[in-house]
Design a protein around this nucleic acid. Structure first.
Length: 300
DNA sequence: GCCCAGGTACGCC
DNA sequence: GGCGTACATGGG
C-alpha cells in the first residue's frame, strides 16, 4: 500500500467515471478497483475536510518503487491542475461552471495499445457496453494477472495475440462490426513493431510505442491510418494514451455542449475544433473532459 | 418496432 | 474534398 498526503485536485469519481478509461470499477466504499501495468490495484481518496480540496490518496497492492515507476505518471500527479483550472475558468463562464462539476478530473496516462483498441470499441457504442466488451476481451485473450480481494484479473491482450485471431474466434466478445477493425489494426501494429529494428534508411519507422515521443500531428497521422480509427478515436488515444493534452476529441456529447452551451452549429465540427484550439489551446483536451463530464451530469 | 450510444468506412458526386 | 448511409450489438 502506498499513501500520499495532501494530494490536491483529485476525485476518484471524476477521474475513473469520466469516460477516459473502461477498466476501473467503483466499490461499495467509493474506492475504485482496476488493472494497469499488469496488476490489479485499488485506489481510494479521502478528503480531510469538506471544501478543502486536499486529501489522502491510497493505492493498495503496489509498493513505493511501483508508485514512482508507473503510478505517479499514470495519475498525472506532478501536474498542477489547480493552475490549469484557473487559466481555463477565465476563458468563459461555461467552462468555469463545467470545472465546478468535475473539479477533481485528471487525465490518465494510459497504455497506448490498450487505449487504441478500447476506443476502436467505443465507436457508436455506449460506455456500459464498451466496458463489458473490454472485460470479455481480456478474460478470453489476456494473460492472468492473479486474484485480488477475491476476484480474478486479466491483463489486456497484446497486439500479436489479437493479430492472430479470426473473426470467429472474436465473436464471443460481441464486438459487432468492430471485430474486423481490431484484427486488422492489431496486424498492422504488430507488423510495424516487428519491423522497427534500426535500419540504415533515412525514413523513420513509426510504431505505436514511439508515438508518445513524436509530435501530435505525426501521431494523429499514424493513428488515423489504422483501420477503425477516425478523427475522434485518434484524438482520444492521443489524449488518454499519450498525454497530448491539446487533443480535443469531438463526440456526440461534446457536440451537444458546443451546440447547446456555446451556440455553435451542430454539424460544424471544424468550427468546434477551431474554437477549442483558439480558446483552450494546449489545455484543449482537459477542457474537453470538464465539458464532457459536465453535460453528462446535466443530463442525469 | 424505434432510437441511441465517446464514429468510421465506403461509395458517390 | 464534402456529403449519405450501412454497420453489430444491447438497453431503454
Amino acid at each position: 500500500m502506498v499513501v500520499r498526503e495532501k494530494v490536491k485536485d483529485f476525485n476518484v469519481d471524476h477521474i475513473f467515471d469520466c469516460g477516459q478509461c473502461f477498466r476501473w470499477n467503483r466499490e461499495q466504499d467509493g474506492s475504485y478497483t482496476g488493472i494497469a501495468f499488469g496488476k490489479p490495484v485499488n485506489i481510494s481518496f479521502e478528503t480531510y475536510m469538506e471544501e478543502q480540496g486536499e486529501g489522502r490518496l491510497c493505492i493498495d497492492n503496489i509498493d513505493e518503487a511501483e508508485f514512482e515507476e508507473h503510478w505517479c505518471g499514470y495519475l498525472d500527479l506532478n501536474r498542477d491542475y489547480g493552475e490549469i483550472k484557473r487559466i481555463l475558468a477565465e476563458k468563459d463562464p461555461i467552462m468555469a461552471e463545467a470545472i465546478k462539476s468535475g473539479q477533481g478530473i485528471r487525465i490518465l496516462r494510459q497504455d497506448p495499445w490498450e487505449t487504441l483498441i478500447s476506443f476502436i470499441i467505443s465507436q457508436n457504442n455506449n460506455i456500459p457496453r464498451i466496458k463489458k466488451c473490454i472485460e470479455s476481451l481480456c478474460e478470453l485473450f489476456g494473460e492472468s494477472a492473479g486474484s485480488f480481494r477475491g476476484r480474478n484479473y486479466f491483463a489486456f491482450p497484446k497486439a500479436p495475440v489479437l493479430a492472430r485471431l479470426t473473426e470467429e474466434q472474436l465473436a464471443p466478445v460481441r464486438l459487432g462490426y468492430r471485430a474486423k477493425y481490431i484484427i486488422e489494426t492489431a496486424k498492422k501494429v504488430a507488423a510495424d513493431h516487428a519491423g522497427a529494428e534500426p535500419t540504415d534508411t533515412e525514413e523513420i519507422l513509426q510504431t505505436l510505442e514511439q508515438l508518445p515521443l513524436a509530435d501530435t500531428a505525426k501521431g494523429y497521422a499514424y493513428l488515423t491510418s489504422l483501420c477503425g480509427v477516425g478523427p475522434k478515436v485518434a484524438n482520444c488515444i492521443l489524449l488518454f494514451g499519450m498525454a497530448k493534452h491539446e487533443s480535443f476529441p469531438i463526440d456526440v456529447w461534446v457536440r451537444r455542449v458546443m451546440h447547446r452551451l456555446y451556440g455553435i452549429d451542430e454539424k460544424d465540427m471544424k468550427h468546434m475544433a477551431d474554437y477549442a484550439a483558439d480558446h483552450f489551446g494546449s489545455y484543449g483536451g482537459i477542457a474537453q473532459q470538464y465539458l464532457f463530464y459536465h453535460i453528462r451530469q446535466l443530463e442525469k
